[in-house]
């Protein structure tokens, strides 16, 4: 474990907590893409299949349980408890256009042609594009609530910090995982224009409103 990875995990944790607080306090899921949350649930389920078979550390296990539990709770809030506030018209991204190519790529490009490894690779590739329905929804509605912007900033920062973690691990431990790094770079790049908007607008107290 290193400071970059710890900050990355804390940023990821903060993103999930910010999202839950937004939903619980405002009792609304307006502006939140249920499809992205479903993709994140798929990512966590596929990646943490080894939750019961391989023990890394208490921290690792607790975080996995927390991530899986909260993402399914988020889906419950979106599609059941606060269903009336879910904006399905604007959440219209065709996720099959993500899942099929990512699934195929996981079969073709992986570290080992073994079921658990292919599923892990699928979760890494899927995570890099899982935010697209959410960014697409914001581009369609033309704006994002400030709290949603904080959620996205924390979520985008988590993988950017992981990139720093991989640089550190390469020089400190000789650890290198090309698949995770390439997917992490793609994932972080997808947030770049949002990061720009966040820093130029939200940090100055303005709301993010894209030219609709």
């Amino acid at each position: 474990m290193n400071i970059f990875r710890l900050c990355g995990d804390m940023s990821h944790l903060a993103a999930i907590i910010i999202l839950l607080l937004k939903m619980w306090k405002t009792r609304s899921v307006a502006g939140i893409s249920g499809k992205s949350q479903i993709l994140f649930a798929t990512v966590f389920t596929a990646r943490y299949l080894d939750l019961f078979t391989s023990f890394i550390s208490i921290y690792n296990t607790c975080m996995k349980v927390f991530f899986i539990g909260t993402v399914y709770f988020t889906i419950y809030l979106i599609y059941m408890k606060f269903k009336a506030t879910y904006d399905s018209n604007h959440d219209s991204f065709r996720v099959e256009f993500l899942i099929v190519p990512v699934g195929g790529l996981a079969f073709l490009v992986n570290h080992e042609f073994a079921p658990l490894e292919i599923i892990w690779t699928f979760s890494i590739y899927l995570e890099s594009v899982a935010i697209l329905p959410q960014l697409f929804m914001i581009s369609k509605t033309g704006e994002a609530e400030t709290i949603t912007s904080h959620y996205l900033f924390a979520l985008g920062s988590y993988r950017a910090l992981y990139l720093c973690n991989w640089i550190y691990r390469y020089y400190a431990e000789g650890f290198f995982d090309l698949i995770a790094v390439v997917a992490g770079v793609v994932q972080t790049i997808l947030y770049c224009d949002f990061f720009y908007l966040y820093i130029t607008k939200v940090m100055k107290g303005k709301k993010i409103s894209l030219p609709a």
Partner: peptide, 10 residues
């Protein structure tokens, strides 16, 4: 590629 046998990252 020398990722550990098991993936130790979240």
């Amino acid at each position: 590629y020398n990722n550990r046998e098991e993936h130790d990252e979240l």
